[in-house]
Amino acid sequence: MVNVFKRLLGRIFKNLFKKKKHLKIGLYGPPNAGKSTLANRICKDWLGEEMSAVSNIPHETREIEIKEQINLQNDGKELSFSLVDTPGIATKIDYEDFIKKGLKKKEAKQRAKEATKGVIDAIKWLDDMDVVIVILDSTQDPYSQVNITIVGNLQARDIPVLLVGNKVDLKRSNLKKIEAAFPQYDIVGISAQYGNNIDKFYDALISTANA
């Protein structure tokens, strides 16, 4: 009961000042879900430049990256925010996996070390976010505990969430599975790489941020 009251009070307080402040929108998800590809798509669309490096090797983003002052306009609605691209959250990191992807042993060990720090930082930054876009790879199993932990922590912190199923351009993509795993959310299916459904994504982002 006390928690419900606290949340209600927090929401009222948040809404009172929402219009005045500049939002911080975070990109969260497991490694290789397409967070940085989406960050680049957003930055290219609204700033004309890319934001993060992307790679097929997991944990390419190992530090928090921020792009300030993005002004998004879609269908007559506007949203001004800073975009925070975060390292992928994982429960295990094995440097030998990076060697299998073609890295040398020394590079692989360094990448693993940086990746573990990146995961810790990403979780620490959760509290600083006003809105979070959770990006899931729609070709992968959505029931992984990392996905559930991320979404659960956002719910616990009362942070608005937009759930995105990425890679819908691929044959193995299965948005229905994500919808079944997270029935309380409207899932937006996109291809961050090719821009499929990106207008719908921008519309949903504005709605989530203004809710």
Binding site: T91, Y95, I120, T149
Partner: peptide
């Protein structure tokens, strides 16, 4: 849920060449 997040953080802190995570 907050404990799960803390568990992941603590796990990352102790990952080394032998212990690869959970």
């Amino acid at each position: 849920k907050t404990e799960e997040a803390e568990l992941i953080q603590r796990t990352m802190e102790i990952i080394d060449q032998k212990f690869k995570g959970i």
